[in-house]
Design a protein around this nucleic acid. Structure first.
Lengths: 212, 212
DNA sequence: TACACTAAGTGCATTGCTGCACTCAGTGCA
DNA sequence: TGCACTGAGTGCAGCAATGCACTTAGTGTA
C-alpha cells in the first residue's frame, strides 16, 4: 500500500466526507431532505466538488450503501476465518456458512444501510437493485472463502449453495425491513434471528421437507 | 468586508497557519531550529506552498513579528480611545500617552515578539531593524491618535514627543530583553514596569533635572 | 396554462496547492 | 582541499477544488 501524496489524500478524504455527510443528512431527514447545497456545507467542500466525485446525489447514497456493505463483508470475513473447517461435505459446508451468518452482527450495518432506502417503498425497483448488488457482493465473498477452505470442492456446488443462502438472506432483509422499519433494537434483532433461523433451517432440510 | 470565497479563505488560513507554526517552532527551538520541512508538516501544507506565500523563512519570522506588532497596536488603540482627553498642553499630552503606555499590556505580545529574535545577540543589526520597524509603527499610531484628539496641536511637537517616548521605549524593550530573556513572568513584568517608569519620569522631568 | 422559482447537474476557466527536479550555499569529514 | 550531504529556495507542470454561468427538470401559483 503506497503512501498517498497530499493530493490523493485530500481527494480521498473529501470523497469520504461527502459520503458520510450524505448518510447523516438522509438519516436525519430521509432522502428528500438531501440537497447538494447542504451536503456541500456539511462535507466542507464546494458544491461543484460533489459532482467532481459523483454523478448524482443518488450515486452518493449508493456509495454510502456500499460502504456499509463493506462493513458487513469485513465482519463476515473475520468470523469466517475464525470458524473451524469442516469435512468438506455439502452439509458441513452449509453448517460452516450458517455458523458464520449466525455469528456475524449483520443487523448493525444492515440497519444503517436500509435506512438509506426510501421508507415508503422498500420494494421498488431501484432500491431493490441496491439490495441485490449488496447480496451479490456478500455471495462472492462467501463463495471465495468456502473455496479457499475446501480446495476439492466443486465450484458449481459451492456457488449454488452460497447463492441459495444469500438469496434467502435477501428476502429476509427486505421482509425484516418492512416488518421492523430496519430499526436496531432488541425486538427487531429478535425478528431478524427468527427469520434467519427459518431460512437456514428450510435450506438445510430442503423444501421438500418443509412444514411437516 | 466582502465574504471570502473558499479559495481566498483557504489561502488566508494557510498563510496564517504557516506564520503560527513558525512562531511555535522558533519559540521551542530558536531560529536555528526552524526548517522548511518541519514547518510544512506542522502547518499542514506542502513545503512548496510555504514559498508560494513567503520568499524565505526569514520573511515568515518577520511576518510573525508584524502580527504580534498588530496586537500591540490594537491594544494601544483601545486603551488610547478609553483615555480622557486632556487640556492640550505638552505636559497633558505627555501624561495621556504615559497613561496609555502604562495601561497597555505590552509584555505579553512583546515577550512573544522578542522570543522570535535570536537569543544570542539581541543587538545585531538585522534584528535591531525589526525592533526599529515595530517602534516606528507604534510611534505613527500614537502620533495619529494624539493629533486626532488635539486638533490644535503642532504636529512637530507631537511627533517629537511621541518619537522621544517610543525611542525610549525601544531602549527599554531591548534592555528588558537582555535582562530577563523576554520571559513573561511576574519578575520580568516588574522589571518592565520599573524600566518604563524610569523612562517616563526622566522624559517628563527632562534630562537636565535627572538624578538630583 | 404559462411563468417563476428552485435545485440538480454540466461545462469551462481559474486558482492555489502540490510534486518533482533542480540549483546553490553551507557544513562536515576524510 | 575536495567531495558528499543537507536544506533553502526556484521553476515548471499537473491536479483537484473552486467559482460562475448555464441548462434542464420539477413544482407551485396565479
Amino acid at each position: 500500500m503506497a503512501i498517498q501524496d497530499r493530493r490523493a489524500a485530500l481527494k480521498t478524504a473529501n470523497r469520504h466526507a461527502i459520503i458520510v455527510a450524505a448518510a447523516q443528512i438522509v438519516s436525519e431527514r430521509g432522502l428528500p431532505g438531501l440537497t447538494a447545497d447542504e451536503l456541500a456545507a456539511r462535507a466542507d467542500v464546494s458544491r461543484r466538488t460533489i459532482f467532481n466525485h459523483f454523478g448524482s446525489l443518488d450515486e452518493i447514497v449508493t456509495a454510502g450503501f456500499i460502504e456499509a456493505m463493506g462493513v458487513i463483508v469485513e465482519e463476515f470475513t473475520a468470523v469466517a476465518e475464525a470458524t473451524p473447517v469442516g469435512e468438506g461435505t455439502a452439509a458441513s459446508m452449509f453448517d460452516e456458512i450458517a455458523q458464520v451468518i449466525r455469528a456475524t452482527d449483520i443487523v448493525t450495518p444492515l440497519s444503517r444501510m436500509l435506512r438509506l432506502l426510501s421508507p415508503e417503498d422498500p420494494m421498488d425497483a431501484h432500491q431493490d437493485a441496491r439490495v441485490r448488488e449488496s447480496l451479490r457482493i456478500i455471495s462472492d465473498r462467501l463463495a471465495a472463502e468456502v473455496l479457499r477452505r475446501h480446495h476439492g470442492a466443486d465450484p458449481l456446488d459451492v456457488n449454488v449453495l452460497v447463492g441459495s443462502l444469500t438469496g434467502g438472506l435477501g428476502v429476509v432483509a427486505l421482509h425484516w425491513h418492512v416488518r421492523t422499519g430496519a430499526s436496531d433494537d432488541p425486538e427487531s434483532r429478535a425478528v431478524w434471528d427468527e427469520l434467519v433461523d427459518r431460512v437456514l433451517t428450510t435450506l438445510r432440510d430442503g423444501f421438500g421437507r418443509a412444514r411437516d
